[in-house]
C-alpha cells in the first residue's frame, strides 16, 4: 500500500521543491514539521541531530554549507571557483527571474559548491550540490564546476568526494544542460584512469540526468537513508505504466536491494565512514608516487 505522504512529498525539483523551500522559510526560527512523521521539531534539537528527526530518524534536507560543515574537518574547506554564475544562454522564458529567486532562496551563486577539504585528516576534492538552488538542477555552470573539480583532482592526485541532490538536467538551459552529462562523465573517466578514488553520497532526491551520469559513476556509491534516487520521476512512471508504484520504490533501500548502491550510511556515521574510506585508498599506490 502506498502511504499518503509519499504523494504529498515533492519527489524532485520539478514537483514542488520550491514550495517546500517556501514552507521552510515560513517556519524559520521556530520549528518545522518532520516531513515523514509530521511531528513538530524544534530547530535547535534538529540541528543537534544533524537535521535528522529525533523521533522517526527521517533525514531532512541540508544546505550545501551545512553539509560541508558536517563533513569537512574544521577549518579545512577551501572553496574553488566561488560566486560563479551563468547567464541565460537560450533566453528561456522566465529563467532570468527564476535564477534571481534561486540566488535569494539558497544564498548560493549556483547549484553546486566546489572546493578542497580534509575528512578525518584525509585530503579530497569536494563537491556538494545545493538543493535550494532550483532543486539542484544541473545547468552549464554546475556541469562546468564539477568537470573542473575532477580535472583539478586528477592534476593534484586527489580523490573526489561528492554529495548529490538534484532534479536532473536544467530544462531552462536546454540541450546545453544535457551535454554536461557527457562532459562530466569524460572528466570522471579521466580522473578514474589515474587510479584515483571517486566517492559519491546520494541524498534526497537524486534523479534524472544526474543519476544517469556522475551520481552512478563513483567507485563507491553511498546513499542517505530513505533518499529518493532514480532516473525517471515517479509521476512520469505512473503516467507511463498507468499503475501505482510499490511502496519504497526508488528509495535508497530499494537501490541497495537491487544492487545499485554500495551502502546506506546514516548522517551521523558519514563523517567517520567517509574518513575511513578515504584513508583506505590513501594507502594504495595512487597518491604516494604518482
Amino acid at each position: 500500500m502506498l502511504k499518503k505522504s509519499s504523494f504529498k512529498r515533492p519527489n524532485n525539483a520539478l514537483e514542488g521543491g520550491e514550495a517546500a523551500a517556501e514552507k521552510k522559510e515560513m517556519n524559520e526560527g521556530v520549528c518545522v514539521a518532520c516531513p515523514a512523521c509530521k511531528r513538530m521539531l524544534f530547530l535547535d534539537e534538529l540541528s543537534e541531530a544533524l537535521n535528522c528527526c529525533p523521533h522517526c530518524g527521517h533525514h531532512l534536507r541540508l544546505s550545501a554549507r551545512e553539509r560541508i560543515a558536517l563533513t569537512a574537518d574544521e577549518g579545512s574547506f577551501a572553496e574553488l571557483w566561488p560566486g560563479e554564475t551563468g547567464g541565460d544562454p537560450l533566453a528561456f522564458p522566465g529563467y532570468a527571474d527564476k535564477l534571481k529567486k534561486a540566488h535569494k532562496a539558497s544564498r548560493e551563486s549556483e547549484s553546486v559548491v566546489t572546493g578542497t577539504c580534509r575528512v578525518g585528516g584525509s585530503p579530497c576534492a569536494l563537491f556538494v550540490m545545493e538543493g535550494a538552488f532550483m532543486m539542484g538542477s544541473m545547468g552549464t555552470v554546475t556541469g562546468d564546476k564539477i568537470t573542473r573539480l575532477f580535472e583539478y583532482a586528477a592534476r593534484e592526485n586527489l580523490p573526489v568526494l561528492g554529495f548529490t541532490v538534484s532534479g536532473g538536467a536544467r530544462m531552462q538551459e536546454g540541450i546545453l544542460s544535457l551535454m554536461q552529462m557527457a562532459k562530466i562523465s569524460g572528466a570522471v573517466g579521466r580522473h578514474s584512469d589515474k587510479g584515483l578514488l571517486y566517492l559519491a553520497v546520494l541524498t534526497d532526491p537524486t534523479t534524472g540526468g544526474v543519476t544517469a551520469s556522475f551520481a552512478m559513476e563513483a567507485d563507491i556509491i553511498l546513499a542517505e537513508p530513505g533518499a529518493l534516487i532514480g532516473f525517471a520521476g515517479q509521476r512520469v512512471i505512473e503516467q507511463t505504466i498507468r499503475q501505482k508504484l510499490p511502496e519504497g520504490f526508488q528509495r535508497a533501500e530499494f537501490l541497495l536491494e537491487k544492487g545499485f548502491v554500495d551502502a546506506i550510511v546514516p548522517r551521523k556515521e558519514q563523517r567517520s565512514v567517509l574518513g575511513t574510506l578515504l584513508r583506505r585508498h590513501e594507502r594504495g599506490s595512487a597518491y604516494a608516487g604518482v
Partner: peptide, 8 residues
C-alpha cells in the same frame, strides 16, 4: 529511455 518499474 523507458520510464518503467523494471527499467528503474
Amino acid at each position: 529511455a523507458y520510464c518503467g518499474i523494471g527499467a528503474e
